[in-house]
Computed example of a mutant assay.
Amino acid sequence: MTDDQTVFPLLSSAEFQRRLLAWFDAHGRKRLPWQQDKSPYRVWVSEIMLQQTQVATVIPYYERFMARFPTVEALAEAPQDEVLHLWTGLGYYARARNLHKAAREVVSEHDGDFPVHSLDAMAALPGIGRSTAGAIIAISTGRRAVILDGNVKRSLTRLHALPGWPGRSAVERHLWALAEHYTPEARLPDYTQAMMDLGATLCRRGQPECGRCPFDDVCLAHARGEERRFPEAKPKKATPRRVTQMLLLRDAEGRVLLQQRPPTGLWGGLWCFPQFEEEAALLAWLDSHAPGAELEAPWSSFTHVFSHFRLEITPRPARTRRLAAVTESGSLWYNPRQPASVGLAAPVKALLDTLGDDLLA
């Protein structure tokens, strides 16, 4: 697709809205936790959690999060460790760090009130961006704002059989123009939720249910039998592979040494086992920090997949009677039988659960 190609709407905005809202009134989701007692804060938390995560997964996390942090002030005042702890298992931890940063910015720069009067001001908050800002404004205030999340991109791309990867700037511009055309002036909370529901429940990535879709008679991808062709995938590159050895160092009481990762980068701010690319570095670290520690046979390696690379992890259990490492800043001895409320990377939590089971066996 070239920049000068024009994609025209298939329906008038009024007809598109009529069909979509009639479907939503009959089949849309209206009792989700964040749809009750709507506020910019509650909608914002839900929108961040829902990025790249399904509704069913988000609901229990959202309910626990709101019980602990019922207001943006409560979230802003909390230590990052506690925020990350409540996010453990939800993945994409940069979302949690940005959520915390944004909460502090809302409190310090906007007196605790989200700047929902301005799309630009909302989009400027950490971790939000144009589409999420539009969703927060539309759902929480009813003011007209346009969204273009992954679900909406998929639905509009199929409806118009729009070629090209939606991440390309030219394709994305066409999608924003279509989203702008179809967005109404009224019923913005329902319309916005309906657009997200359409992609999440009918126009799904793998198995779209075209027979139930309110646009099945005009959808170009469906007419061609090419629903799975659209949206076109991002051009593939070879997925890089990295390797790491995680040191599972236990003391005589069964506690395990954890270290806090740097605030940015891989697993930023989370607590992890000491990691080493090579065994020589691991052995040198043990000689320096826990002399006399007994390194045991490695556990089976496993792979943790990130969006941009694959990490092959080899757990290296060891035992020590000396606690010199605990004096280092950013280290703690974690008791799997009495877990501390700290944020843990998913593979670290799984390994700690295994160690805890061994202790209880």
Rank of each mutant, 00 (worst) to 15 (best):
D4S: 15
Q5N: 11
P9N: 02
S13M: 07
S13D: 09
A14P: 08
E15L: 12
D25L: 05
A26C: 05
K30V: 07
R31N: 10
W34L: 04
K38T: 02
W44L: 00
M49N: 02
L50T: 02
Q54T: 12
I59Y: 06
P60R: 14
E63P: 05
E63M: 11
A67S: 13
R68L: 05
V72Y: 00
A74L: 11
Q80F: 00
D81H: 01
L84E: 07
L86Y: 12
Y92G: 13
N98I: 09
L99M: 12
H100C: 04
K101T: 13
V106T: 02
S108W: 10
E109I: 00
D113N: 11
F114A: 05
V116A: 06
A121N: 10
P126I: 11
G127A: 02
S131M: 03
T132A: 08
A133V: 02
I137Q: 04
S140M: 04
T141R: 06
R143E: 15
A145P: 14
L148E: 05
G150I: 10
N151R: 06
K153N: 09
R154G: 15
L156I: 14
L159C: 04
L159M: 08
P166L: 14
A170N: 13
E172P: 01
H174A: 11
H174D: 05
W176K: 07
W176M: 10
W176A: 01
T183C: 10
P184T: 07
A186K: 13
R187T: 06
L188R: 10
L188K: 04
T192R: 01
A194M: 07
M195Y: 01
M195R: 07
L198Q: 06
G199D: 03
A200R: 03
C203V: 06
Q207W: 10
Q207N: 13
C210M: 06
C210F: 02
C213T: 03
F215H: 02
D216A: 13
A221L: 10
A223S: 08
A223I: 01
R224Q: 14
G225H: 03
F230W: 11
E232F: 04
A233G: 03
K234R: 15
K236S: 12
K237V: 11
Q245K: 14
M246K: 05
L248T: 06
L248I: 15
D251V: 04
D251E: 02
A252F: 08
E253F: 13
G254Y: 03
R255F: 05
R255N: 09
R261W: 09
R261G: 00
P262S: 06
G265W: 09
L266H: 10
W267K: 01
W267Y: 12
G268V: 05
F273V: 01
P274M: 09
Q275M: 10
F276H: 04
E278R: 15
L283Y: 11
W285V: 00
L286D: 02
P291L: 00
E294M: 12
E296Q: 15
E296D: 15
A297L: 15
A297V: 10
W299A: 15
W299M: 13
F306N: 07
F309L: 14
P315S: 14
R316M: 15
A318H: 06
T320E: 02
R322V: 15
V326W: 13
V326N: 14
S329L: 12
G330I: 04
W333N: 07
R337F: 01
R337W: 05
Q338A: 13
P347K: 03
K349E: 15
A350N: 12
L352P: 00
D353C: 09
T354D: 13
D357F: 00
D357K: 12
D358N: 13
L359Y: 09
L360F: 08
